[in-house]
């Protein structure tokens, strides 16, 4: 520590440090407040409906006052799983292309362009989904309306391609050159090197990115709200992705606008939000742990 200077300056320094300390713990306070308010507002629903019925009841019918989250859970799972498949199938090849195949000039142009597209607001994706995707799917698969679990999955899957591709590209590029050169020197082709050396070495980073993206897909609101159809019933049969559904986020965003403050419906929507928050927080922490572990082990890639 520094000596000298007047006492005033030392007290000034202390005050500054105290201010910074306060700003630093704000994040903790806010995280706690978010949990506190979501729990406080959803307690009446857990109390009146009962936790088992609320979480696992297989009917969500707000005008009738029946609140069971099972239909939301199945729709959300279907949307997320399908969106993730689309996301990985398209995003990972793009990342491999950017990191291994593209010319330096091509990457110089494509990487920022893709990063830019990651910032397109979700409401714009929702708008395009309503005007373009929904009518396209409706006519292609001869559905009643194109609004469906499939539409939401396609939209969310495409929406998060830039996010997945940029993170995966970063972890692919962080794999030390020596690994690749060693493999090539042993006579492996470039593809064999990518498949057997680069991808496995970057796999933890890729898995962390995928988990992060699962959280993003589950938590994405506006795009899902506008194309999923927002009818809270389980699809029958369960794999019927052409049926309309309602995800956690779309139910909250679609119904919260018209509920009376403090009603059971209001409280149940907060309970949905709480479940969503818990799931996403668990996913984020998992992703964080994986990333921290990689950093410890390899110095980060």
């Amino acid at each position: 520590m520094l000596r000298g200077g007047g006492t005033a300056r030392r007290y000034g320094d202390k005050a500054v440090e105290a201010f910074f300390f306060f700003t630093a713990i704000t994040s903790i306070i806010i995280m706690a407040l978010i949990f506190y308010f979501l729990i406080r507002e959803s307690v009446p629903a857990f109390y009146e409906v009962g936790p088992v019925h609320l979480l696992l009841g297989n009917k969500w019918h707000s005008p009738g006052g029946i609140f069971g989250m099972m239909p939301l859970i199945t729709s959300t799972l279907l949307v997320t799983a399908l969106a993730l498949v689309i996301n990985i199938l398209i995003g990972l090849p793009l990342a491999i292309y950017l990191s291994e195949l593209a010319s330096p000039l091509g990457r110089e142009i494509l990487k920022p362009a893709i990063e830019l597209l990651a910032g397109v607001p979700s409401i714009v994706y929702g708008f395009l989904g309503v005007l373009v995707l929904v009518s396209y799917l409706g006519s292609t698969f001869d559905m009643l309306t194109g609004r469906s679990i499939l539409a939401a999955a396609v939209l969310l899957g495409v929406m998060f391609i830039p996010a997945l591709a940029t993170i995966c590209e970063d972890s692919l590029r962080a794999v030390p050159k020596e690994f690749k050169e060693g493999s090539l020197a042993l006579g492996a082709t470039e593809w064999q090197t990518v498949r057997n050396v680069t991808l496995p070495a970057a796999s933890s980073g890729i898995i962390a990115a995928v988990i992060l993206n699962v959280g993003r897909i589950i938590g994405e609101t506006m795009a899902a709200l506008l194309v999923v159809g927002n009818i809270a019933r389980s699809p029958s049969p369960l794999f019927d992705v052409f049926d309309r559904g309602a995800t956690f986020t779309s139910v909250i965003a679609g119904e919260m606008g018209e509920v009376a403050h403090g009603s059971l419906h209001y409280s149940s929507l907060f309970a949905v939000g709480l479940v969503l928050l818990v799931i996403v927080t668990i996913l984020n922490i998992t992703s964080e742990i994986i990333r921290a572990r990689i950093q410890k082990k390899f110095g980060g890639y």
């Binding site: 938590g219 986020t249 909250i252 996403v280 984020n284």
Partner: peptide, 10 residues
């Protein structure tokens, strides 16, 4: 990672 809709509820 907190979903934007949860911020809305908060």
């Amino acid at each position: 990672g907190v979903p934007s809709v949860v911020y809305g509820l908060f």
